[in-house]
């Protein structure tokens, strides 16, 4: 099922939507100086739309546009400014890494410095049911295509790292049981909570920082050149999942939300305790052993995951603390 087309949020997303609906190509307008592209609704929505052509597609959009040169040109222009912002965002984190450490110690250094605010703690202890639903709407942008961005990397690897990535993804994709697909479990949890489980249903409510988490994953996954960053991202994502998922499940049970929701998060406590070991020890380490030049990219991916999650988490908590449960972009 493809995503419905969202409303434009400014000139850049308007340009992207126009291109997707058959308008004559126009050059990307000059972005304002000092623009924070990772928190810019307009840029992030445009980038998300263009990347989505490679995932599930968009309703009413010609699927051939996936490889249209003008569409790719706009996507590349936006990816360039996005990646420059990601590099800037993680520079201080990466400076903490000891270049003489082995890879697992370097990843551990980055994970230990994680300063992300705890959305999971808020959900566990304080959130009300509407705040929980607000959180689920934001997370639906990723969880309804859970693990898809990292799947693009499978054919770009070989040897033990490829085997371990396939093993991890087999689990994400239901371990041979369609009913076990993690994206389906999330859709069922949404439905049980009275939220629309359709793919892309909450796109108009997705904040820039939520979209930036997703666009970063898709860029890393889609470009063979960023396969190291994609796997570093996966390692950080899985390594910061088990404990927060347990807290989120606790919050869900505290509020008496449907069992399907707590069950989804409890499944991830166990699954991601396995996946974090696979991602660090059985994917990133053999991958870098085979291709040592990927080490820096792996660390970039780890830091990008942590920094973008922290950005999105901080924004979410600020909104909750300000008493705004849901922000719909103008």
């Amino acid at each position: 099922m493809s995503a419905p087309l969202p409303a434009a949020r400014g000139p850049v997303s308007e340009l992207a939507l126009g291109l997707l609906l058959g308008d004559e190509p126009r050059p990307l307008p000059l972005l304002p100086a000092g623009i924070d592209v990772l928190r810019d609704d307009d840029v992030q929505l445009a980038l998300w739309l263009l990347l989505e052509l490679h995932h599930r597609g968009l309703q009413g959009v010609d699927p051939d546009l996936e490889w249209d040169p003008e569409v790719i040109r706009l996507r590349r222009d936006l990816e360039e400014v996005h990646l420059a912002a990601v590099h800037e965002l993680v520079r201080d984190r990466l400076a903490l890494v000891d270049p003489d450490d082995d890879l697992s110690a370097q990843i551990a250094t980055l994970l230990a410095q994680d300063d992300g605010p705890s959305v999971a703690d808020f959900l566990a202890r304080r959130a009300d049911a509407e705040q929980f639903r607000d959180f689920l709407r934001q997370r639906s942008i990723y969880h309804l295509k859970e693990s898809d961005p990292h799947a693009f990397v499978v054919p770009r690897l070989d040897g033990p790292a490829k085997v371990a990535l396939a093993e991890l993804q087999y689990d994400e994709f239901g371990a041979g049981r369609p009913a076990g697909l993690h994206s389906l479990l999330f859709a069922q949890a949404l439905q049980a909570c009275g939220l629309d489980p359709a793919y892309g249903a909450h796109l108009d409510e997705a904040r820039a920082s939520t979209l930036a988490v997703n666009t970063t994953m898709s860029i890393f996954g889609l470009h063979r050149r960023w396969r190291g960053a994609a796997m570093g991202h996966l390692a950080a994502f899985e390594s910061t999942s088990s404990l927060p998922c347990r807290r989120i499940a606790t919050g869900s049970r505290r509020l008496g939300l449907p069992d399907a929701l707590a069950a989804y998060y409890e499944e991830h406590v166990e699954a991601d305790a396995v996946h974090e070991q696979l991602a660090v020890r059985n994917i990133c380490m053999p991958m870098v052993a085979a291709e040592p030049e990927l080490r820096e990219d792996v660390l970039l991916g780890v830091a990008a995951c942590l920094a973008l999650d922290a950005l999105a988490g901080r924004e979410q908590l600020e909104l909750w603390h300000a008493g705004v449960t849901q922000e719909v972009p103008a």
Partner: peptide, 19 residues
């Protein structure tokens, strides 16, 4: 396909690891 068995003895979901 792969399970993580708790080795620290502190898991709340023993015998499985919960981080």
């Amino acid at each position: 396909p792969v399970v993580a068995v708790c080795a620290c003895g502190m898991s709340g979901r023993a015998p499985w690891c919960d981080g």
